[in-house]
């Protein structure tokens, strides 16, 4: 089972809740994904603390754990304030921390991120930082008190998959005991399977499901891919070879056509 800040989860597929055609479709997708955690962007969905009651009640009725995020925040101060608002609205100390540094790629501002993580961890938040595959930044985030990291696969919403498998593999190898969740850039289920095969603990998907023609069907496909990738990791994949290695030996067989 996946352990995130002491919470045991069966599902290794986390879903974002933005950009679905309707809340009803979102509900279907969460069920089809058998997700146990959904992220909610407080700022962009409601524009205020008490304003999105209709939407919040739909999220609560999903009966899953909510991981609020600070999407759209560009500074430490904004992110910290949003985290506090989220704690009040959802009654959880979990916070997915995003501090955006660049608008075209939505690339994290890792300097602001480590600073905000330090502040929020000290205030008792359980922080899930959206970061890059950079090892030094990961060290700083862990030192700040984070117990989970969420490295990107590719820029948010780009659907490009794992842009830097080498860097991500190194991250996995450096922090064998820290839960690592691939957060952004997953486009199709094979990307998610690959992430789990590389040893990542879970994936978070939003756009790839929300913007699919049939979101619930795509959510189910991702659930299968995540299960396959995890099972493959546990089963110990073979090493690739350069030359053919026949699965049935040919020397000494009785009949050769």
């Amino acid at each position: 089972m996946l352990q995130l800040y002491g919470t045991a989860l069966r599902s290794r597929l986390l879903l974002g809740t933005a950009r679905y055609p309707s809340p009803a479709v979102l509900t279907e997708a969460v069920r089809a994904a058998r997700a146990e955690v959904v992220t909610v962007a407080l700022r962009r969905e409601s524009g205020g603390e008490r304003a999105g009651q209709g939407f919040w009640s739909i999220i609560r009725e999903l009966g899953v754990r909510v991981l609020p995020n600070t999407a759209g925040c560009h500074s430490v101060k904004e992110a910290v304030a949003t985290a506090h608002m989220a704690r009040e609205v959802f009654g959880t100390s979990w916070i997915k921390l995003e501090v955006i540094g660049e608008d075209d790629t939505l690339q994290p501002d890792v300097f602001g991120l480590t600073e905000a993580a330090r502040i929020l961890c000290a205030q008792g938040f359980e922080v899930f930082p959206y970061t890059t595959e950079d090892l030094v930044v990961a060290e700083r985030l862990l030192a700040a008190g984070c117990r989970v990291l969420m490295p990107w696969g590719a820029p948010i919403g780009s659907g490009r998959g794992l842009n830097n498998p080498f860097g991500l593999t190194a991250l996995r190898a450096h922090f064998p005991d820290v839960p690592l969740i691939i957060d952004a850039g997953i486009g199709v289920p094979s990307h998610a399977a690959r992430a789990l095969e590389l040893g990542f603990d879970a994936v978070l998907i939003n756009t790839a499901v929300a913007q699919a023609r049939a979101p619930a069907q795509m959510a189910a496909a991702f659930a299968q891919a995540v299960e396959a990738g995890r099972a493959a990791r546990l089963a110990g994949p073979m090493e690739p070879r350069d030359l053919a290695a026949p699965s049935t030996p040919v020397i000494g067989t009785a009949f050769r056509g």
């Binding site: 962009r44 969905e45 409601s46 524009g47 205020g48 304003a51 999105g52 939407f55």
Partner: peptide, 13 residues
């Protein structure tokens, strides 16, 4: 399109 039931003022963003 913002999930909100308060149609107060437009936000700067």
């Amino acid at each position: 399109m913002i999930e909100s039931d308060q149609g107060t003022r437009i936000s700067a963003r």
